[in-house]
C-alpha cells in the first residue's frame, strides 16, 4: 500500500526531465551559495534558499536539500555535523513548503520562522558536538553551556544575516521563482 503511494508520488513529482533539472539547479545553487560565503563565518544563504525552494517547489525543494547534504558529505567527509545537516536543512524546506500554503504566511512570518530555525540549528549542532547521540553524557549540560557560549558570536552573526536577507530577499526570490515555475506548468 505504502509502496504504491510513494511510487505514485515519485512518478508524479520527480519523473519528468524538467523536474530533474529543477532539483539539480536548486542543489547546485545551494552548494554554490554555501561555498561562495564559506570564507565569512556564519554568513550564509542556505537557510534562505532552502526556505524559498521549499515554499515554491514543495517536495522538489525538500529533495534538493537532501541531495545538498549528500554533496556536502562528498566534499567534506563524514562528521557528526552531517547528522545536524541531514535533520536541519530538509526540515527547513519541509516547514516552508507547508507554511507557504497558508494565506497569512508573509515575509515577516517567514523571517520569524527562519530565526527560530537558526536558533534551533545552533542548539542542535552544539548538542550533537557535545555528544548527545554518541553517549558522551558526563557533565553534559555544563559542557553544552560552555560550548554554546563559545560559539555565541557566530550564532548571532547567523541570526543577523538571516534577519537581513529574509526581510530584503525572501519575497523577491519567491516571486521570481513562482513566475519561473508557472512557465513550466
Amino acid at each position: 500500500m505504502w509502496e504504491l503511494f510513494i511510487g505514485k508520488v515519485i512518478e508524479k513529482k520527480f519523473s519528468s526531465a524538467i523536474n530533474l533539472a529543477i532539483v539539480a539547479v536548486m542543489t547546485a545553487l545551494l552548494e554554490c551559495a554555501k561555498l561562495l560565503l564559506s570564507l565569512v563565518p556564519n554568513v550564509e544563504l542556505v537557510t534562505l534558499l532552502s526556505a524559498v525552494f521549499g515554499a515554491v517547489f514543495g517536495p522538489l525543494g525538500v529533495l534538493s536539500t537532501l541531495i545538498f547534504v549528500v554533496v556536502e558529505y562528498f566534499i567534506w567527509g563524514f562528521g557528526t555535523w552531517l547528522v545536524s545537516y541531514a535533520i536541519h536543512w530538509p526540515l527547513v524546506a519541509l516547514t516552508f513548503w507547508l507554511c507557504a500554503k497558508q494565506k497569512w504566511f508573509n515575509k515577516f512570518w517567514a523571517t520569524g520562522l527562519a530565526l527560530v530555525f537558526c536558533i534551533g540549528f545552533s542548539f542542535l549542532t552544539s548538542l550533537v558536538d557535545v555528544g548527545l547521540f554518541t553517549g558522551v553524557w558526563q557533565d553534559f549540560w555544563h559542557r553544552f553551556f560552555v560550548y554554546y557560549l563559545r560559539g555565541i558570536v557566530f550564532y548571532l552573526v547567523q541570526l543577523a544575516t538571516n534577519l537581513v536577507v529574509f526581510l530584503s530577499l525572501y519575497d523577491l526570490i519567491k516571486n521570481s521563482l513562482t513566475k519561473i515555475k508557472t512557465t513550466f506548468n
Binding site: 558536538d129 554518541t134 560552555v146 560550548y147
Partner: peptide, 8 residues
C-alpha cells in the same frame, strides 16, 4: 578555561 568540552 580553554579545555575542549566537546565529544572530540
Amino acid at each position: 578555561s580553554d579545555f575542549d568540552v566537546s565529544q572530540y
